[in-house]
Computed example of a mutant assay.
Amino acid sequence: MKMILKKLHVYLYAFSVAFSYLLLFPFFYFFSRKPSRYKYMNALRRVWGIVSSFCLGILYVFEIEQPIDWSRTYIICPNHTSNLDITAMSIFVKTNDCCFMGKQELADFFVTALFFRTVDVPVDRQSKIASFRAFKKVMERLESGVTTIIFPEATIPDNYPPQLKDFKNGPFRMAIELKLPIIPVTSLNTWEILWDDGLKYGSKPGVCNIFVHKPIETAHLTIDDADALRDEVHAIISQKLEEHDHRRTNS
């Protein structure tokens, strides 16, 4: 019975996301027509994420290690265990000059296609040329002051419960080349609310706890430090996940 209820919940959540998207689509479409309007598209995406989740009892709580100066440009690197991580980042980022970098398939998915054909940047990792073009486009966005969210695992882990995967080098090389700070973000339990897309184990109401680590400055680094920076961010997120798992096990 519990699994039946969780499966029902995930279908209701999907309906909430799709229905609210359709209601807002005329506005999303209008804002998507010109790059100068993308900031309004992002602002509305934040509202969409809050409302579509709240309707099914899903909330987001952010613990921020150090206040974020949103007048600066950042590369934000969260771990990735759930589709809810995307919503969480949409809500967390308080500048409307932002974008996601994500897999090419999102440019064809019903509720993400419009975004990944306009404000966001899709990347086809199966093609070196396409990947190069995507990263070049992101570099241009960053240089123009657009904060970018990149999931450095590049995908949601296949194993359940999910284990942190190795990180790709791309966001760390870009951060060093452009001398931009990186913000590591640990999604502590979104997978417990909804793992991956929720189709296998369903979903449930609950609070998604997100820990935002203090920014890591890169101005003093060289491109030779990219691997070390990648490993540092991986270790920060991994340690936070271990601390959370330890508290949960002993509570």
Rank of each mutant, 00 (worst) to 15 (best):
I68E: 10
C98R: 03
Y60Q: 01
H80A: 06
V93Q: 06
K39A: 14
M89C: 10
F62C: 07
V47S: 14
F19Y: 12
D69M: 05
F19M: 15
L59Q: 10
N83C: 05
L56I: 12
R45W: 01
L84R: 06
P78S: 07
M41Y: 15
A88K: 02
H80W: 03
N42H: 15
T87Y: 07
L44P: 10
F15I: 14
E65L: 05
Y60R: 01
A14V: 14
L59G: 09
S53Y: 07
L24T: 08
V61F: 14
I86V: 13
F62V: 08
A18Q: 02
L24V: 12
I86Q: 00
S32C: 09
A14I: 12
L24N: 09
T95C: 09
Y29S: 00
F27N: 01
N79R: 03
I68A: 04
L59W: 15
P35G: 11
Y21P: 04
M41T: 05
V51I: 15
Y60V: 04
F28S: 04
V93C: 11
Y38V: 09
R46N: 07
L22Q: 05
D69I: 05
T73E: 12
V51Q: 13
F31G: 06
T81N: 11
Y29P: 00
F54P: 00
P78Y: 07
N79P: 11
D69L: 10
F31I: 13
S20F: 00
F92R: 09
R46F: 03
T81V: 10
Q66H: 13
E65I: 07
L56P: 00
F25T: 01
T73A: 14
P35N: 10
N83F: 04
I76P: 03
G57E: 08
F92Q: 11
E63A: 11
I68P: 08
F28G: 03
Y40I: 08
W48A: 15
P78L: 11
L24R: 07
S36A: 15
N42K: 12
I75N: 02
F28R: 02
R37I: 05
C98Q: 05
Y60C: 02
L56R: 02
R46H: 03
L24F: 13
F54Q: 02
D97P: 00
R33E: 06
V17W: 01
P26L: 10
F62T: 04
M89Y: 05
K39V: 10
R46A: 04
R72I: 06
D97Q: 14
N42L: 14
V61S: 06
K94A: 04
V93T: 10
G57M: 09
T87A: 14
A14C: 10
S52G: 09
C55Q: 07
T87W: 07
D69S: 08
K94D: 05
R45S: 02
Y13N: 02
I86R: 00
I86H: 00
V47L: 15
R33L: 15
F100Y: 09
I76G: 01
L44H: 09
F54L: 08
F92M: 13
F27E: 02
L24Y: 08
R45F: 02
A43I: 00
R33Q: 11
S82I: 11
E63S: 12
I64T: 14
